[in-house]
């Protein structure tokens, strides 16, 4: 039987709506495991997973590690600074060496777009993309979808706007594909210098003014503004960015409806998002983090060949 997701999870763009729904549905029963006193099931006992992080990450790495450990997998964390990568070893050699140690899965975070696919084409193990350059961050996209679905019921016909540095954002791309596949209308809003030149060809609505985006949308996914974009000349200043594009309470109060506020983190409070919005009643930012573990458990489970229908049963019993 072909595994329902194939060998790897590299991006949301190639997935079908059914595959995305399957992951989200599979994540539902896994949410409950994290609420238990003993947060562990034996599903992946005996599996070896390497978390290969070539870029600094706290949230995503910890989330994956919890997901793996709660499924009883054996995990090893490799970070660029501690590995032979810093000694000039190529990605392909790193991959082959890991494979030679007979691992089952690799979770990779890398600064180069396409790095996860590059790895997946060269090793037998399952590969999960934990963010590749400015390409995709599929598990982030999935946890955003799960969080939105929790609140909106369905994404069909819902209007979701992604705000900020879409040009350099892998989160934006995964969100655009995932949301569109589930039937949502997708908007993007940001300075044109931080939107891809061909952005409208991606099938999204483009808003130049955050006020217009807020009036249109039912939820905003506010992207982190990388501070180095200012040095690179894409925007003149963080202060002006906040004044023109910042998601502020004043702007939200003028909206015709309450908007859900998402943010993939880490936040620059007072730049792309004001603190009273981030901590406000419509913020679901911490729910995203909680859902992240469940979604990643679902992805690990499905890639390991777990039968889709048995996710509910998989949670049965604590670690025996």
């Amino acid at each position: 039987m072909t595994p329902p997701l194939g060998k790897d999870l590299l991006a949301l763009e190639p997935l079908t709506p059914e595959q995305i729904r399957l992951i989200l549905d599979t994540a539902e029963p896994f949410k409950e495991i994290s609420e238990r006193a003993i947060k562990k099931v034996p599903t992946l006992r005996g599996s070896t997973i390497v978390n290969l992080f070539f870029e600094a990450s706290t949230r995503t790495r910890v989330s994956f590690e919890f997901a793996e450990k709660r499924l009883s997998a054996d995990t090893v964390n490799v970070t660029a600074s501690s590995s032979s990568v810093s000694k000039g070893e190529t990605l392909v050699d790193t991959a082959r060496n890991l494979e030679a140690m007979r691992i089952d899965m690799v979770v990779i975070r890398h600064s180069a777009s396409g790095a996860a696919q590059f790895l997946a084409e060269r090793i037998e193990s399952n590969v999960i993309n934990a963010g590749d350059g400015t390409h995709e961050h599929p598990t982030q996209g999935l946890l955003d979808l799960l969080t939105l679905r929790d609140h909106l019921g369905t994404l069909e016909g819902r209007r979701i706007c992604i705000c900020g540095d879409v040009l350099h954002s892998r989160v934006a791309r995964s969100n655009i594909w995932g949301l569109k596949k589930l039937g949502a209308e997708v908007g993007v809003c940001g300075p044109r210098s931080l939107l891809p030149n061909a952005v409208s060809e991606l099938g999204v609505e483009v808003f130049d003014r955050i006020e217009a985006a807020i009036e249109w949308a039912e939820a905003l996914n506010v992207l982190r503004l990388q501070l180095e974009r200012m040095q690179a000349g894409y925007i003149p200043s963080l202060r002006e960015y906040n004044r023109v594009f910042g998601v502020t309470r004043e702007r939200l109060e003028r909206a015709p409806r309450d908007l859900l506020i998402l943010h993939p983190g880490p936040m620059n409070r007072g730049v792309e998002i004001d603190s009273d919005v981030a901590d406000g009643p419509h913020s679901v930012i911490l729910e995203q983090v909680t859902n992240g573990v469940a979604v990643r458990m679902a992805v690990l489970y499905l890639l390991a060949g777990g039968p889709p229908g048995l996710a509910e049963a998989a949670k049965g019993g604590s670690d025996r």
């Binding site: 777009s113 396409g114 590749d132 350059g133 400015t134 390409h135 791309r173 891809p196 030149n197 060809e201």
Partner: peptide
């Protein structure tokens, strides 16, 4: 630069 670069996340 175009829609393919936008999709692939390449400059």
């Amino acid at each position: 630069e175009g829609v393919v670069s936008a999709r692939l996340g390449l400059k």
